[in-house]
């Protein structure tokens, strides 16, 4: 083997070793790399209790209850299998609305998630308002409402 070939194969070996090590390490730390738990994981006991975690899901339609006169808000987030009730006091991001994906940080207390931070998660789809409106109208006309552009607010990028 010429020195050049030797260097080439050393480099290839280093890269393969590095890739495998990284893959194993990432797999091992998978639970730490997840940004949030979904409601099914919370109900399945996969989410740790008694410490601060993040829970993510879609704000269920018609579930938002605001206290008049203060910033207290209560809503239900769902992954369409299970749901979690969230209580929060504070300002909500501009994208917060029913049907929107959100991620709440806080603690589970007696089955209710007491959040100290609520973030909005949006997906990778962008649409002009007129198109979104007409799409929605067409879908409602056909009897399907949930899958209009509002479905653009599902928790995309969350393979389960």
């Amino acid at each position: 083997m010429t020195p050049r070939q030797k260097r080439l194969w050393t480099l290839v070996a280093v890269l393969v070793g590095l890739g495998l090590t990284t893959a194993v390490a990432l797999k091992g730390f998978e639970s730490n790399l997840q940004y949030f738990y979904d409601p099914s994981e919370v109900h399945g006991g996969k989410a740790p209790t008694g410490k601060s975690i993040r829970v993510g899901g879609m704000v269920a339609k018609g579930s938002v209850v605001r206290e008049p006169g203060n910033l207290q808000v209560q809503f239900v987030i769902t992954d369409f299998a299970e749901s979690v009730t969230v209580k929060y006091t504070g300002l909500l991001p501009d994208l917060f609305r029913e049907g929107q994906g959100i991620i709440a940080h806080g603690q589970l207390q007696d089955g209710v998630f007491m959040a100290d931070e609520v973030l909005a998660k949006h997906d990778e789809k962008y649409t002009p308002p007129e198109v979104a409106k007409s799409l929605k109208k067409r879908h409602e006309g056909m009897g399907g409402s949930a899958n209009a552009p509002a479905s653009a607010t599902t928790m995309e990028g969350t393979p389960r």
């Binding site: 990432l26 998978e30 790399l33 997840q34 940004y35 949030f36 979904d38 993510g56 991620i103 973030l119 998660k121 949006h122 997906d123 990778e124 789809k125 962008y126 928790m155 995309e156 990028g157 969350t158 393979p159």
Partner: peptide
Amino acid sequence: SVTWWNSLHQGSTVLR
């Protein structure tokens, strides 16, 4: 990162 794990950041808009 946005497909292997759940994250706050959304997926790619163009390369998807």
